[in-house]
Amino acid sequence: MIRQTMLVVMGVCGSGKSEVGRRLAAELGARFVEGDDFHPPANVARMEAGIPLTDDDRGQWLQALRSQLQQAQVAGEGVVLSCSALKRRYRDLLRDGCPGLAFVYLKGERALIEARMRARQGHFMPLALIDSQLADLEPPQAEEGAIEVDIRLPVAELVAGVVARLTAQTRSSHA
């Protein structure tokens, strides 16, 4: 494991957060936490109905995720969390609860994201919410230090690139 891995894989619906997060966790020797599992039933019902979540709707969910990160950090356990983290203030809330938290931003074009969402089955997030997610997205700014990756890359290549960047960051912070 690279130091104590505390990582959020972020992006809009359909960007590949769960798949990339699972693979990163395996590669880094960390536990994977699926952020969608922490949505309260009311949020899931709203999304299933095609109703975008508001900041208030996301509050309880983000607090639950922050708690997961804090518990892992206290236990000395590495975690890779999948979470849309669409807005800066959401990322700040997660960061405030977990010093040293890093973000991997899965960036992609709407057409590719739509194609992926059409292909997936059994997920509560409908295609109709892509535009609201893109409208809410505040891409990480340079000072946030997020690792930005292009979702057109094959997942194995994407994961290898993130691991290489994390390794380089760890080496430079120890130099």
Rank of each mutant, 00 (worst) to 15 (best):
R95L: 07
Q121T: 14
A164I: 03
L28Y: 05
I147C: 11
I2P: 03
G29A: 05
M125C: 09
Q4C: 12
A75Q: 14
G11Q: 08
L129E: 10
Q121L: 10
V159E: 05
A102W: 03
V8H: 05
Q73S: 10
G50L: 03
N43K: 03
S67I: 01
I51T: 15
L24F: 12
P140V: 10
E157M: 10
A156W: 07
I2F: 05
S173L: 13
V20H: 07
R22S: 13
E77M: 11
Y90K: 03
R3H: 11
L65D: 03
H174Y: 11
A64C: 04
S82F: 01
Q70R: 14
L81E: 02
A175C: 11
P40T: 09
T5G: 06
R31L: 03
I113V: 15
I51N: 06
D57W: 08
V80R: 00
G100H: 09
E144A: 08
V33C: 09
A72K: 01
R171Q: 14
Q60C: 09
E143T: 08
Q60M: 12
G29S: 10
I2E: 06
E138T: 05
M6L: 15
V80S: 08
H123A: 05
R110I: 07
L62S: 10
A175Q: 14
A111P: 05
G29L: 07
V163N: 06
S173W: 04
L106S: 01
E77N: 04
